[in-house]
Design a protein around this nucleic acid. Sequence first.
DNA 1: GCCGTTTTCGGCCCGACTGTTTTCAGTCG
Length: 590
Amino acid sequence: MSLNNDLSDLFKTFAAIMEIKGEAVFKAIAFSKVARVLNDMTFDIKDAVEKGTLDEIEGIGKSSRKIIEEFVATGRSSDFDDAAKAVPAGLIPMLQISGLGPKTIALLWKERGITCVEELAKAIVDGKLAGLKGIGDKKIEQIKQGLTMREQAGKRLGIGDAQIVAEEFLRQLLTLKGVEIADIAGSLRRRKETIGDVDLIAGVVTSVTMESITKAFTQFPGVARILGQGPSKASIVTDQNLQIDLRTVPVDHFGAAIQYFTGSKEHNIKLRGLAQDKGLTLNEWGLYQLSEYDKAKKETAQPPAVKAVASKTEADVYRALGLEYIEPELREDRGEIEAAQAGKLPALITRADIRGDLHTHTTASDGANTIEQMAEAAKKLGYAYLAITDHSKSQMIANGLTAERLLKHVEAIRRADEKIKGIKLLAGCEVDILVDGSLDFDESVLKELDWVVASPHVSLRQDAAKATARILRAIETRYVNVIGHPTGRLINQREGLPLEFAKIFEAASRTGTALEINAGYPRLDLTDTIARAAIDAGCMLSINTDAHSVEGFDWMFFGIQVARRAWATPANVINCMNYKSLQQFIDRKR
DNA sequence: GCCGTTTTCGGCCCGACTGTTTTCAGTCG
């Protein structure tokens, strides 16, 4: 759905141009929303254009409809091209510099002729910013730091890495006297695949000041730089260049605060609109009667002097708004609020629902442990079954198995299965999907296996038509049970195959072929929104670790999180089936 | 620009912190 992505980028840029031009801020907000809606969409926007259903999509109005229709037809938008002429393209990346916003960028452009990041850096060195209204020495220093950070920061951190840092700071926070409760909020709590910064919330007892906590936080070991610190919040950068924000509230307001700072921003905006409809107002202190709240005395960094309708727990806040409790992974304004109103939220999959792992490696190819060691480790995790799926012959670099070696390996797996009680071992293989969609082994070999994962490993830069035909051919192959890491993308490193998912989903669901959520970081492939589209299209998912050692089984944690963000219930995931049902799933295609 | 069983015009989420200021704009989340 690269068309969706292209259009999403166009609207994002359009919004930035509007901000810099100083147009009504709500116009820019409206287009930003269109950008997000396009990005999150689980279907191809082209279909909506052809069916004439663009109007039914929330956030898309007259202007954006026109842009979308023109872009789908011609690959361009005249409205966008006109707007882009008015603002130098180099100004848009400047919005990513911390401390610089649209107003300041417009000022720098109009008063000093600065049109890109490089010119800004030079202007600072040359002292050209002096004398600008509202720009003092400190502001210049802030921009300078923002420029340095931009060079160093580069990419968002993976959840695995961010989690470790966040937990260490959380641990330190909980040792402080007066901190009764504390937790991670923000995108890390929502389990997004990458993290921009870490948010921590602390509930503080009344006998100490909140400022003593924010102050102590800035003194923690591992703090490289303090970005700001006030009576109730503080921001620091760690020596690994990760920003951590701390917000403190009195214990009684912890629920409202962690709700607020878990986000997403879009989820919260909608929630606050809902509060308004009920004559309430929602902020980080709590949910209040609007009439009482307006009259109440308010001081910065202090709860308002009025009793909250809800504030102590998140569940209280959601309940008071007439909603089911919404799990953090769902809070993206992708329909979860409407579902919660209707009492129709999915019962999300949890780790306890997983009965087995269906994509793992052993010493036979490039794994670190034997069949027996992997089986015993899986048994300890409480699994009912485990598929051993070593690489096929094309994966020379991974010591891929020839047909002859594979068949011997199958015998070894069957012997181990006899010997080890309490877990069923499936003799399988991760077979390469070759460039043209044929497989690394022909059917005479595949039919000897209990389980086949077919995965693309090479030629991952094919165009959409070739890539889609390639995966479709694998799906149509009789003995293929699941497509492993279907796109081959690597987070922050590799785009992966540009598949036409509507076709993939149709074939997968019709043939009874599962699609994998590869839990290995940095794969996480399929992604959350694509996996959700697959579920909507009636496909079965399989969450597998691709473990290359017994430790690799731990990756399951990340795969579950992607599935939860995809609204998956146990009914959508084949490795939540008991062994008998799994066998029926396999038999149906054979 | 988008939206609407109180609105087709007039709203649109809300507060903390910083810096450059004498009361507030800009930025951030």
